[in-house]
């Protein structure tokens, strides 16, 4: 018969595993598969960044997308001084850049994705929210 201590230890280990699993599952980023095709589905910043391909080139926390190594990660964008090396870092400039990057810097590889200005504002707000 196993002793109480052993049973306690086993329970503690199980609890630890459970807590770890909860921790992993709690930060559950948006999954695009169920949402991007939905008519009238959520149009939050995360879904927008998947639909317009932002998250495919850039590493953006909280957005689940296959990660290509094309653009820089967008962590801590609000601490930066210049955007893309050409613009002062202000919210309106970020929105301008997201909507029409090639209008600002014709040499950039960042495409004009067809995102509207209102949507770009949502995306910019999300990006500035990232610490």
């Amino acid at each position: 018969m196993p002793s109480r201590a052993k049973i306690g230890a086993a329970a503690a280990i199980l609890a630890l595993f459970g807590a770890g699993a909860l921790l992993i599952a709690s930060e559950h980023p948006a999954d695009y598969r169920g949402t991007v095709f939905a008519a009238g589905g959520p149009a939050d910043a995360q879904t927008l960044m998947i639909r317009f391909g932002c998250a495919t080139c850039h590493d953006i926390r909280g957005v689940a997308a296959p990660g290509a190594h094309v653009g820089p990660p967008l962590e801590g964008i609000r601490e930066r001084v210049y955007l893309a090396g050409v613009l002062e870092n202000t919210p309106s400039n970020l929105v301008r850049w997201i909507v029409d990057p090639r209008g600002i810097n014709p040499k950039t590889a960042m495409p004009i994705t067809g995102i509207s200005e209102a949507q770009a504002r949502d995306v910019a707000a999300y990006l500035y929210g990232l610490q």
Binding site: I24, H28, P29, D31
Partner: peptide, 10 residues
Amino acid sequence: RAQLARPENK
């Protein structure tokens, strides 16, 4: 399972 815990986990 750790890989599958989140979509598009890397």
